[in-house]
Amino acid sequence: MLTRTVLQQADITRALSRIAHEILESNRGGADLVLLGIPTRGVMLAERIGRVLDELEPGSGTVGALDVTMYRDDLRGKPTRTPQPTRVPPGGIDGKTVVLVDDVLYSGRTIRAALDALNDLGRPRAVRLAVLVDRGHRELPIRADFVGKNLPTAMAERINVTLRELDGEDAVTIVGRHSAEETR
């Protein structure tokens, strides 16, 4: 199995910092902004982006978590998934600009589920999407507004995101680039 590191700690930190700047720019400031991370690693990324936002514009880094497990379209086919907690910041999401944060954007199905979940929580003024990695192969008409890195991949490859909060180190790796070589 071939493993290639595509983003290291400094790259990830830079990407998140850039995303934070872009969020502030497109929102014309930090007012009425809510970052909702999608568990597990999306929540950690949202917290990191939130810290940068707070440095740039104190009070703008409102962060929560949005679990989408119960809204997935593949609950039947896959082994049982355990939902993670959803945390909505005290001010709620009505009338706010919600930025969904996830680690990898792939088929787009997680984000579709997240949009459904948001719908049950309230009515944001706008919903944006920030991802650390966009690896392509969308199955739904969904795109990200803020992307850490565009990473063209083959379907057979796997993207692994590790974060120091959970895995001890920051890295984005591609696993199994040449499926023919794997069999050797």
């Binding site: 497990t69 896959k78 998934r81 692994n160």
Partner: peptide, 10 residues
């Protein structure tokens, strides 16, 4: 996509 939490159901 990173692995989700999979557990055996009941």
């Amino acid at each position: 996509m990173t692995p989700a939490t999979h557990d055996a159901g009941l």
